[in-house]
Design a protein around this nucleic acid. Structure first.
Length: 276
DNA sequence: TGAATTGTTATCGT
DNA sequence: AACGATAACAATTC
């Protein structure tokens, strides 16, 4: 479940390995990985040099030396590995690139949900993505406007990549907890102070997670350190670090959701009647 | 064995 | 028509 911090960590790891290297072969063993098609991706990338590695939302973006781009989305179970050609392959390698010098970029993806997208028009391909939460343009005012002109529940709204690009289930739960907001609260029902708080917590949380190289939960994404700093995600039944109330698990828009019922009271919900 | 997992997209309703 | 809510889907793990 790589989200923005895990993707950013991956980008930082692979930037020095890939930049300036020439791709001499592209192969995929799972045709659906390649968009628009495996032959199209191969024609586009073979012979090209990787000019620059960056990130947009949860996409890893390889800028090629001819102005085209290759986007890699890890989805649920994708991870990248770097291997010299004599090393044995990790499991579930679906797609790989060979570079001059005999080294390879391996795209391992147990669930096969990942994507490798070749495009000559990066702007058009990423047009559907929302604002970058760590960019300068993501100001408290911009976020306030964005929340206020929608009428959706906070959690599904924050998970929507066309609104804010890069947040996933883990960091949405954590950001809402830190801002003391219930995930079902309608986005247009927040006060200016609440939107400002959520804005600040999202940015601080993502920066903290990047600093700790992301969150590691299973075999998918190793070597992160953020999992010990999460306060609600994956902690169902354990005491809230703030008030010691047991963390509750609920479903919001088909997503597993973790909250502290005391720190994150339902906003606008009818208060339980006091006896007598 | 089937429930759980998640981001994206298709579909339906308002 | 545009938006919001919901379902379906990809495939594997435990």
């Amino acid at each position: 479940m790589p989200e923005l911090p895990e993707v950013e960590t991956t980008v930082r790891r692979f930037r020095p390995l890939l930049e300036g290297r020439r791709i001499i072969a592209f192969r995929t063993r799972w045709q659906r990985h390649a968009v628009p098609s495996a032959p199209a991706v191969r024609r586009g990338v073979v012979g090209r040099t990787v000019a620059r590695v960056s990130r947009r939302g949860k996409y890893i973006v390889l800028a090629l030396d001819d102005g085209a781009h290759l986007l890699i989305h890890l989805r649920m179970s994708g991870r990248l590995e770097w291997a010299a050609d004599h090393e044995k392959e990790p499991a579930h390698v679906r797609t790989l690139w060979e570079f001059d010098g005999g080294q390879r970029l391996l795209f391992s993806d147990a669930r096969k949900f990942g994507r490798v997208v070749y495009t000559r028009d990066l702007a058009a391909t990423t047009a559907g993505l929302g604002i970058e939460p760590l960019a300068r343009e993501f100001t408290a005012d911009a976020f306030d406007t964005l929340l206020r002109r929608r009428t959706r529940q906070l959690k599904p709204l924050l998970l929507d990549q066309s609104v804010v690009a890069g947040l996933g289930n883990i960091y949405v739960d954590e950001a809402l907890f830190r801002a003391r907001l219930h995930p079902l609260t309608r986005s247009d029902h927040l006060s200016a102070a609440q939107t400002a708080s959520l804005h600040e917590h999202i940015r601080a949380l993502l920066r903290e997670a990047i600093r700790h190289h992301g969150t590691t939960f299973d075999w998918v994404y190793p070597s992160g350190g953020m999992q010990t700093r999460l306060r609600v995600y994956g902690r169902t039944g354990q005491p809230c670090p703030v008030c010691h109330t047991p963390i509750e698990y609920l479903r919001v828009g088909q997503r597993g959701t973790h909250i502290c019922p005391r720190c994150q009271p339902a906003n606008g919900a009818p208060r339980p009647k006091r006896g007598r």
